[in-house]
Design a binder for these strands. Sequence first.
DNA 1: ACGGCCTCCTGACGGC
DNA 2: TGCCGTCAGGAGGCCG
Length: 274
Amino acid sequence: MPELPEVETVRRGLAPLITGRRFTGAVVRQPQLRQPVPADLGARIAGKRVDGVERRGKYLLIRASGETLLVHLGMSGRLRVLTSPPAPDRHDHVDLLLDGADGGGLMLRFHDPRRFGLILLCEPQGTHPLLANIGPEPLGDAFNGDYLFRASRGHRVAVKNFIMDSHVVAGVGNIYASEALFRAGIRPQTAAGRVSHPRYGLLAAAIRGTLEQAIACGGTTLRDFIGVGGHAGYFKQELQVYGRAGELCRVCGSAVKQLRIGQRSTFYCSVCQH
DNA sequence: ACGGCCTCCTGACGGC
DNA sequence: TGCCGTCAGGAGGCCG
């Protein structure tokens, strides 16, 4: 489900609703996520006041009085803020409870059918091994064509796989990899080490532009992504190639092609991309 | 070090 | 109707 724009949409929705509130506990119905939910989660967060919500790649970091909650939505995860929560369904695995100034509490409910998501507590310094080797943020200053060019020398992987590697750049998933390569005019199957310096300049700009535009749209809802308030993202209507196999390229009118690279569906235009 | 495949899990969909 | 294979927005781990 969520790539960087969707996680950022969640972060932006979440931060103003929970910042300043105090955790009162947690209900864990299903601890078996990608890694086990800490058994003492509720006890560890109880009484901690939320200072803010950050994002690193596709990870959310909820900072609260020196404790840091790490949340990843995996492929099918959702986070909702609820004031009067309905009875949990079978995939509502964790509820994080927060107090309310007027007595009305809030619930942060984690829902994840495939359970590839993650809820962990960080080390006292607020770090975690899962975050240690993530590449630069694509919206940050360290990410540019120069960086991609240098990082890619000698690599024979397809450039699409290269930009989807979180150690290379954080947060670019299957949708936005195809979209950014289309915008940059680069074929996804090209070996990363054979893409020129100027073309990496185009690609870095395309990645940044695509992600920023998707964030402005509240993310992409393909089937089930919703923000914390329950709203769908509307970047789907802006998609140029992803999910459009056989449909006409919006630029040149030829049929969008689909192939599999590294077990992932990949979409491109064979006229616009070389 | 690198690259490619597998894995975790559930659900939806198409074909027979 | 059901059963089976395939695919789905992630990403760490393992193997050669």
